[in-house]
């Protein structure tokens, strides 16, 4: 159940494989959200292959940590991690968004092994994570942790701040939020669509322990999460700065890649880049 001593290189390799899978599955599906899936790949890899206690052979084991993908449109990054971990076979990845697939356009806990709760309507995940954290008995000695991944654009939803208030009020120190701050949303830059101001300061003002990191630096992500987890009596948040579309040169920092699939030519180029990145790490698919 507990992860082995953390091997950041191995996690980076997992993230590189997940990026390849993300692009391949969205391209095959013909639709989906590559930008926010690629931005979150290192964070999700760090959680599933470095931080969280979980066992793909026993997805319902009570002693597992929990993950809630509040930014549900990034489902491909979760599916890539679950497949890589062994919750289901890789062959399912290329059925994404197809009729009868385990893998719905947004996470569906009734269909996909390893998905704790259905998400997709933004702004709800942190509230759900609060409920799980309460239900797991935060004061217990065998404390299990609930991790919740939000988008920065998602933080425009008022409910996020209802949950932020609730978590601090209830001293949920078994709750960790990670904000994938890629700075872009469908209509453009978050700062132009609806400026969020200082996300860190907002969470701090609500009573959270706050850390920031480079969301593509696996060691930094793991250290930051450990740091906010170590403070008793309050929830923790890591604001991770990322690049939307990270890993595919022509998708990086382009709002247009929030929610569309690449063409055949674009797919070939993207997969070529991602394969080369794997080879640099001395790995193949």
């Amino acid at each position: 159940m507990s992860p082995n001593p953390i091997d950041t290189q191995a996690i980076e390799l997992k993230a590189a494989r997940m990026r390849y899978d993300i692009v391949e599955m969205i391209a095959t599906a013909g639709s989906g959200h590559p930008g926010g899936s690629l931005s979150a790949a290192d964070i999700v890899a760090a959680l599933y292959f470095g931080i969280m206690r979980h066992d793909p052979a026993h997805p319902d084991a009570p002693e597992r940590d929990r993950f809630v993908l509040s930014k549900g449109h990034a489902a491909p990054v979760l599916y890539a991690a679950l497949s890589e971990a062994g919750y289901f076979g890789r062959e399912h990845l290329l059925t994404l968004r197809k009729l009868g697939s385990l893998l719905q356009g947004h996470p569906d806990s009734k269909k996909t092994p390893g998905v704790e709760v259905s998400t997709g309507s933004l702004g709800q995940g942190l509230s759900i994570a609060c409920g799980i954290a309460l239900g797991l008995n935060p004061s217990a000695s065998d404390e299990r942790t609930v991790y919740c991944l939000l988008g920065d654009g998602e933080c425009q939803e008022g409910q996020v701040w209802e949950a932020a208030m609730f978590a601090a009020h209830n001293s949920l120190d078994n709750l960790v939020a990670i904000v994938d701050r890629n700075g872009l949303q469908i209509d453009g830059a978050c700062s132009e669509v609806m400026c969020l101001g200082e996300i860190e300061a907002k969470f701090a003002a609500f009573g959270w322990e706050v850390a920031t990191c480079d969301g593509h630096d696996v060691e930094g992500i793991i250290d930051s999460i450990a740091r906010v987890c170590s403070v008793p009596g309050c929830p923790g948040v890591v604001v991770a700065s990322t690049v939307k579309g990270k890993g595919v040169s022509f998708m990086e920092d382009e709002a247009g890649w929030h929610g569309k699939a690449p063409s055949a030519e674009e797919t070939e180029a993207a997969l070529g880049e991602l394969k080369a990145a794997l080879e640099v790490k001395g790995a193949t698919l």
């Binding site: 509230s127 759900i128 609060c130 409920g131 209802e162 609730f166």
Partner: peptide
Amino acid sequence: AGIAEQNMIDVAAGLAVA
């Protein structure tokens, strides 16, 4: 949950998940 009905419903959902 205080005066926050959306949070109320989803906190309950999380408790049910647990």
